[in-house]
Design a binder for these strands. Structure first.
Length: 784
DNA sequence: AGCACGCCGACT
DNA sequence: GTCGGCGTGCTC
């Protein structure tokens, strides 16, 4: 053992031989597990309970999860280290059901997420705190503003990093705990290490506190309600699907079915009947929905039919969320409805998980653990012998492929709209031809005419801009360059402020009346009037949703126009606006793709898609699939009442196959075409994929590390004969984010297990010493 | 992640 | 020589 033993370590808590040993994981970026003894007076401890244990050389009391009780306590001499003892047991009973714990370990293993962070992510903070609020380490200055200069040139004269941190805090006026900066934010923005902060702390220059952080998410106003539908009779397709599901549910064995139903084909009614069946069999159901679809009208649709419902979504207060969770723990809910993380609801009699809109990319969590809600739902069903019902009008190619070719999967089709409503007429306008090509207006002649007609009939219109980031950038027509974020290398988006007209005046050489905003890091910049490279005039280019709003107000005077997107929306306003639109107070609603989701407005008879091909320009193999999905969703937004609907799609590439297929509403055709392409190019769903993304502020360092890791992958792969295709390090689609460069190594293989074997050998065996930040994205859903 | 250890450069 | 910043490696 090391020399340190000569000086005698502080022995924490009880010592001596351990009669009980447990395996603990900490909520930190640590892949390993740690064994601890349990003092007799704290026994028993079971898997899933949180414990406090001395951790690290300083024996810092740290919270961790017990993941296992070790049956055979081995001989202390055989252990290569000295066993410490836990000091507290935090929970009086396990926070996890047995199956959930098993699921958590699987997620940690499958997605290469630290087990402690994975388990922590499965339990809402509100539950862990006991209806509290999320607390986060906050750092603030312990001096007065007028002392800053003196300290910078005095005590910190020689400490460059500390100066930077100090200056940053002073700039942000963090002179008290309530003005403090959150530690992760501080570290990111000043690029400092822990030791820098530690030094400042020991010098008494900064204070460390904890602050409560509230999540700012939409809160559903109580009065946002819609009348319920009358008693519904199933059509023959629904009846057939249900018959299959009833049989599956009564067998209590694992299975997955993919319910492919066009908009208004009655998928929800099938869900409801299946859930009803599960309840009759004494089992619970979880319904997963994308966060944005989780509106009170959706919730109401279910709450009208079931009594014992628990709701888990981000709009709830901490106390509400904890209360809902406890209801599930106490077995007071038959139906649990929620967003992605509701897949972790502590149901003990689970029989069915419904994943609605299963193709939605938002099911993939973009933080550790980077799990896919749909895939975790399927895994959980497998562990619990439950049935997983996936539903979509445009299923993902993965699910479609599985439904066609894999065991345990079944495809259920609902090809007809329930009320026998006709599919809306979809028209395409070629923006690259005729007068529209030479017009700088966003709306084509055809669309303008259609809007006018709809307004005359007192009907409503929805206009959709595909991606906000791809419009209204500041462009130099001479250099052919857009102004980019200095940190993220992303084209900045121009946003107007107040009601001033852009370019109406000049303040120095900056444009008055607006900012350019980076949609990745949120930083704002004043916009120069002249190009910094050539000095010539810069122009605003593209169709931002703000510009659209202006054009609409100009062209359709008298019509009430509203814009909906995450820039103009302050959480609850979103629902107010939808409410106003629903009650007919708004004639034209313009916005980004969030409008394309499952909202129901009977009086909408016209939907216009303004830049339908914008997404196709993104270099991501799924961009065609996304475009098809969005256009199909849009087509479903209209003609839902008695009046016939119409969709007008503007595009510069009218011949593009994806757009053609979307216009024809030909999902089959799209899938068959796309699957051939994917197979030819060895892309998912024919292969599995993982992205290893390295990032660092120094490009040189990043490049050499990426090269090193790439070589290591190649070596291991060759040595162990793993059939994994390893790409050379390539710049990520977003080449730079938060002033860090990003390189991707893309791994593809016929089997995901080959990829994981390769990654395991790098992550767990110490074959590579990590010098830059690395994230592992297993089954990536977006290449960004 | 968070902490202590210890190398090395800056300054007595 | 000594102080202390900051990179490195370990944590049951």
């Amino acid at each position: 053992m090391s020399q340190k033993d000569l000086f005698g370590e502080i022995v924490p808590a009880a010592s001596g031989p351990a009669r009980h040993v447990i395996r603990v994981v900490f909520n930190q970026a640590l892949m390993g597990t740690f064994d601890y003894g349990v003092p007799d007076e704290l026994w028993p401890v079971s898997a899933g309970q949180r414990v406090r244990a001395p951790f690290g050389r300083g024996n810092k009391p740290t919270e961790g999860f017990c993941v296992e009780v070790l049956e055979d306590v081995q001989d202390p001499a055989a252990r290569g280290y000295r066993l410490k003892f836990i000091t507290d047991v935090i929970d009086d009973k396990s926070l996890f059901t047995k199956k959930m714990l098993e699921l958590g370990i699987w997620i940690s293993d499958y997605y290469f997420a630290p087990p402690g962070q994975t388990l922590a992510g499965m339990i809402p903070a509100a539950v862990k705190k006991g209806a509290g609020i999320a607390r986060i380490a906050v750092i603030y200055l312990l001096c007065r503003p007028d002392e800053v200069e003196h300290i910078l040139s005095g005590k910190l004269k020689r400490a460059k990093k500390q100066q930077a941190v100090f200056k940053y805090l002073a700039e942000k006026a963090a002179f008290s705990i309530d003005k403090g900066i959150e530690k992760p934010e501080l570290k990111k923005n000043t690029d400092c290490s822990d030791s820098v902060l530690k030094s400042l702390q020991t010098q008494g220059l900064i204070g460390l506190g904890a602050a409560s952080v509230l999540k700012s998410l939409p809160v559903i106003p109580d009065n946002y309600t819609v009348k319920s539908a009358a008693k519904i009779e199933l059509n023959r397709h629904q009846a057939a699907a249900l018959k299959y599901l009833e049989n599956e549910l009564s067998q209590s064995s694992f299975g997955v079915s993919l319910l492919h139903g066009v908009t208004d084909s009655g998928k929800t009614e099938v869900y409801i009947r299946a859930i009803d069946m599960a309840i009759k069999l004494g089992r619970q159901s979880i319904i997963l929905l994308p966060e944005i679809a989780l509106t009170s009208q959706t919730i109401q649709r279910f709450s009208e039919r079931f009594e014992k419902i628990a709701v888990l979504h981000s709009g709830l207060t901490a106390a509400q969320r904890n209360a809902e969770w406890q209801r599930i723990v106490n077995d007071e809910a038959d139906v649990i409805i929620g967003a992605r993380s509701a897949v972790f609801a502590p149901a003990r009699r689970l029989g069915l998980i419904v994943v609605d809109e299963e193709h939605e990319a938002s099911y993939k969590q973009d933080m550790v653990p980077r799990y896919h809600g749909r895939d975790v739902a399927i895994k959980r069903c497998q562990l619990e012998n439950a049935h997983c019902l996936l539903g979509s009008a445009t299923p993902s190619l993965e699910s479609m492929y599985n439904a066609r070719y894999r065991r345990h999967y079944k495809l259920l089709e609902l090809p007809e709209r329930v009320m026998e409503l006709p599919m809306p007429a979809v028209e395409c306008v070629d923006m690259s031809a005729g007068e529209d090509a030479f017009s700088d207006e966003i709306l084509s002649r055809k669309l303008r005419d259609a809007i006018r007609i709809a307004l005359r009939r007192k009907e409503q219109v929805i206009l959709l801009l595909n991606r906000r980031g791809y419009s209204a950038f500041v462009f130099c027509p001479d250099c052919k360059e857009a102004i980019r974020c200095k940190n993220c290398d992303v084209a900045l988006t121009y946003h107007k402020r107040g009601g001033q007209k852009a370019g109406s005046g000049a303040l120095g050489n900056y444009r008055v009346g607006g900012y350019a905003i980076c949609h990745h890091c949120g930083s704002k910049a004043l916009v120069p009037t002249a190009c910094p490279l050539c000095g010539k005039r810069l122009v605003l280019k593209g169709a931002g949703s703000q510009r659209l709003e202006e054009e609409l107000k100009e062209k359709f005077t008298g019509a009430k126009v509203a814009r909906i997107d995450s820039d103009s929306m302050e959480s609850a306003d979103y629902y107010k606006l939808l409410d106003a639109f629903s009650s007919g107070d708004i004639d034209i609603l313009a916005g980004t793709q969030m409008l394309a989701k499952g909202l129901h407005f009977p009086n909408v008879t016209l939907v216009g898609v303004l830049n339908s091909d914008a997404a196709l320009a993104i270099p991501d193999f799924r961009s065609g699939e996304r475009t098809f999905q969005i256009l199909s969703q849009v087509a479903g937004r209209t003609g839902r009442g008695e009046k016939p609907g119409k969709v007008i799609i503007q595009t510069v590439k009218p011949k593009q196959a994806v757009i053609q297929l979307a216009i024809q509403g030909d999902y089959e055709g799209f899938v068959n075409r796309e699957l051939v392409i994917r197979q030819q190019l060895s892309l998912p769903p024919y292969t599995r994929m993982a992205i290893v993304r390295l990032s660092d502020k120094s490009y040189q360092m990043l490049e050499s590390e990426a090269q090193k890791l790439y070589q290591l992958f190649e070596d291991i792969s060759a040595r162990s004969g793993l059939k994994v295709n390893i790409s050379k390090p390539v710049p990520s689609i977003i080449t730079r984010l938060h002033s860090a460069y990003r390189l991707d190594i893309r791994l593809t293989s016929i089997s995901g297990e080959y990829i994981r074997k390769l990654l395991r050998s790098v992550i767990y065996e110490k074959t590579y010493k990590q010098k830059v930040k690395i994230i592992y994205d297993i089954d990536p859903i977006s290449m960004l």
